[in-house]
Amino acid sequence: MSTSIRIKAPKTARKGDVIELKALIQHKMESGYRRDEKGETIPRKILTEFVCLYDNEEIFRADFHPGVSANPILTFYTRATESGTLVFRWTEQTGEVFEDSTEIKVT
C-alpha cells in the first residue's frame, strides 16, 4: 500500500508563539471488525502511534485504537522555541514506520 503523509505547519514563527500543526496519513485503519464477501473477518491492521519530534525532542504523542477513522488526521499545538526540524512519525502495529518532516524558522 502506498502511503502518503501530509503535514501542515507554519514555515516561520515568532519565538514563544503557539503554532498549530496538522498531520494526515493515508491508511485504512482496518478495525478487525469488518468481514469480507466470504464472511471471514478481515484482520486488524492499524496505526497504533503518532509522535511529533521538535529537534529530536518528543513534544506530542498519540496512541490509536480501532475507533480512530481511516486516513487519520489530527491537529495539535506546540510552542515555537527555536528554528529546527519537526518530524511526524506514524507507527503501524506491524512495527512499520512512516515519517515525514518539515523545517520551521523561528525568529
Binding site: I19, S31, A62, G67, S69, P72, Y77, T78
Partner: peptide, 19 residues
C-alpha cells in the same frame, strides 16, 4: 485514542476523526 501533552504544547487542544 489517547493524546499525551506537555508544557511545550502551549495549548491543550486536539482534534481528529473517530468511528
Amino acid at each position: 485514542a489517547t493524546y499525551h501533552l506537555s508544557p511545550r504544547s502551549g495549548r491543550a487542544k486536539v482534534n481528529g476523526r473517530i468511528r
